[in-house]
Amino acid sequence: MEDGTLLAVENLSVRYAVRAGEVSAVDGVSFALGRGEVLGLAGESGCGKTTLAMSILKLLPENGRILSGRILLDGTDLVPLSEDGMRPLRWRRLSVIFQGAMNSLHPVYKVADQIREALSAHDPLLSAAQARARTAELFRLVGLDPSLMDRYPHEYSGGMRQRAVIALALACDPELVIADEPTTALDVIVQDSVLRELQSLQSRRGMSMIYISHDIAVLAEVSRRLAVMYAGRWAELGQTEEVFDRPLHPYTRALLASVPSLFGPKKRLDHLPGEPPDLLHPPRGCRFHPRCPRVRDVCSARDPEWQDYGGGHFAACWNPLGGAA
């Protein structure tokens, strides 16, 4: 890992209280993120990827709680920290880029004022002139014309708003950025330019990044390592090329085989039968077993262990592909 570990998540479990009971949204997730590393996180809606992000930021909704586990940022556990303890860390050390750019910008404030607020929250001594200069610099950094900074969010196009949200997330030079579907709402040509901007910023500033997406193709382009999540648990983690070439978990293979390609031979897509489980009542054992083409007796009886198959390629599966488990 490059320059050591920045973030270590250990055995994290998160639940939501709902009227009908408790939803097991994240269950026993562990991973480490190196400094300057981009980790891709793939999975379908409801698999817990956004909950995982919100847990790391300690921004869970009121009915959500961290049941167990540790979230170590440079060795400091964030889990026991109060809101007062978290506030100095957010934006400055870890920040987030959300999917809905319109929702992360306040509609009645000028974009420059919102960035200045983030800047001055962490440096109250910053003068108005310094804040403006810094904002202009951030605008240039994300490829926005600084002359636009005194406009309101609704005067921006979708791509411009998403760049403004990236500028906001980077305002305090954070070490870790969690990007949750940052380009999903964008058209493909705008997505391309936002992706390139984000990648170049990441490598120039040496930020660590967790890039969350349902789009396997985007993850193939941005991430060095790739994690696949299913029904609140991590199914697989490895170097992105390894995971694409030699998936271990049957869910990973199914996910890869379900994505149509624009080039190369055209072949019929595989699709998984069934639907992801209801996490109010997750299935016993492996949560994928009801849909798994490689299911065995043990899969419905016991949880599979998170196992290293060599070279940092992990999977939680009783009957992995190509593996001798």
Binding site: M160, V188, I189, L195, A217, A220, E221, E241, L256, L262
Partner: peptide, 25 residues
């Protein structure tokens, strides 16, 4: 041509040229 070259490829080894297109829509 611009549209096609903007589409991310589901292949970690693929390298794409940036789409040749000016400005925004």
């Amino acid at each position: 041509r611009a549209l096609l070259s903007a589409v991310p490829r589901p292949d970690p080894r693929a390298r794409r040229e940036p789409p040749k297109i000016l400005g925004g829509v």
